[in-house]
């Protein structure tokens, strides 16, 4: 149970402000979830590079000299440490190898997500603290999603915070609670998916990843989620160039969207949107039940 925000910029001149806009949106939703908060920012991809966002409960020992340790095993990586997180930039194509090396060299490190452009920051605590810890305000980007959590049935931990990464450059935030996630998790585990938490939302994320691995695009995966996921949900998802929203067929968890020539925005409540430029003139609506909404930079261009 939670507050969700999302912002997809159409106007490139707003891109430097993405982190600041999204931070304010998320902080406004604090009341909906005081347990943990997280944000995924899609920034400019560096040509030929892949980003991996890492988290550690002991960032000192884990991140210090990480570059050197990776170099020793023949992996070239630049490491940018931000509090409990670090963003690794490695050569495209070396992502899997780097993750394998990290598991050996620094077993305490957790991968929050990876891809060409996504960076994911999440921690326990209030949105304002999480945002300032990672200096999210200073970050630019094309789109992003954020989440503040009131844990229902799973633990309040960093890994239990949203967004959940669903594959390269994919992530998901969820408001609601699923009622068939345990069965679904068992099926996905049989198919080879690996889970970090007991969180129902992680099951939704893994489900989308598994469906996309079978060849579906995100829109199609969300359509099949409407058949296969039971319970209450509003999902906001991000891909490298896209941004999607879907609500369950009963659709009683709140969701408000706004669109202008400059952006598409999502908030669990209208309050989250009030600081956006030109909101007074935006088209504001509530997404229909069991309907997939999707925006894509590449398709729009």
């Amino acid at each position: 149970m939670c507050g969700i925000v999302g912002l997809f910029l159409k106007d490139r001149s707003l891109e430097p402000q993405l982190g600041a806009l999204l931070s304010d949106m998320l902080i406004t939703m604090t009341d909906r979830g005081p347990d943990s908060a997280g944000i995924a920012i899609y920034g400019a991809p560096a040509p030929g590079k892949t980003k991996i966002t890492l988290q550690s409960a002991t960032p000192g020992p884990d991140f210090t000299k990480l570059e050197g340790a990776l170099a020793e095993v023949g992996l070239r990586a630049s490491v940018t440490v931000k509090n409990t997180h670090a963003v690794l930039e490695v050569d495209a194509g070396q992502g899997e190898e780097t993750r394998a090396a990290l598991a050996r060299l620094r077993p305490g490190i957790r991968v929050m997500g990876s891809g060409d452009s996504v960076e994911i920051y999440k921690e326990t605590g209030l949105p304002k603290d999480v945002v300032s810890r990672f200096d999210v305000r200073s970050m630019g980007g094309t789109h992003g999603i954020g989440h503040t959590r009131m844990a229902t049935e799973s633990a309040v931990t960093t890994l239990g915070a949203h967004p959940f990464s669903t594959g390269a450059d994919q992530c998901l935030v969820h408001n609601g609670s699923l009622s068939n996630h345990n069965n679904l998790r068992r099926e996905l585990v049989r198919e080879g998916m690996i889970f970090e938490t007991q969180n129902d939302s992680e099951v939704a994320a893994a489900y989308l990843t598994a469906e996309m691995a079978k060849g579906k695009d995100l829109g199609q995966a969300l359509e099949s989620a409407l058949d296969d996921l039971d319970g209450f949900f509003t999902f906001v998802v991000g891909t490298k160039s896209g941004f999607g929203v879907v609500r369950d067929p009963i659709a009683c968890k709140p969701a408000v969207m706004a669109e202008t020539d400059q952006y598409v925005a999502f908030g669990s409540e209208y309050r989250a949107l009030v600081n956006l430029p030109g909101i007074e003139k935006a088209r504001v609506w509530e997404p229909e039940p069991a309907t997939v909404y999707f925006w894509d930079h590449e398709k729009a261009a």
Partner: peptide
């Protein structure tokens, strides 16, 4: 079985 104008703890708070 459910309240007509709220669902879940986040809405209950309001």
């Amino acid at each position: 079985c459910r309240h007509p104008d709220w669902t879940g703890p986040d809405d209950l708070e309001i």
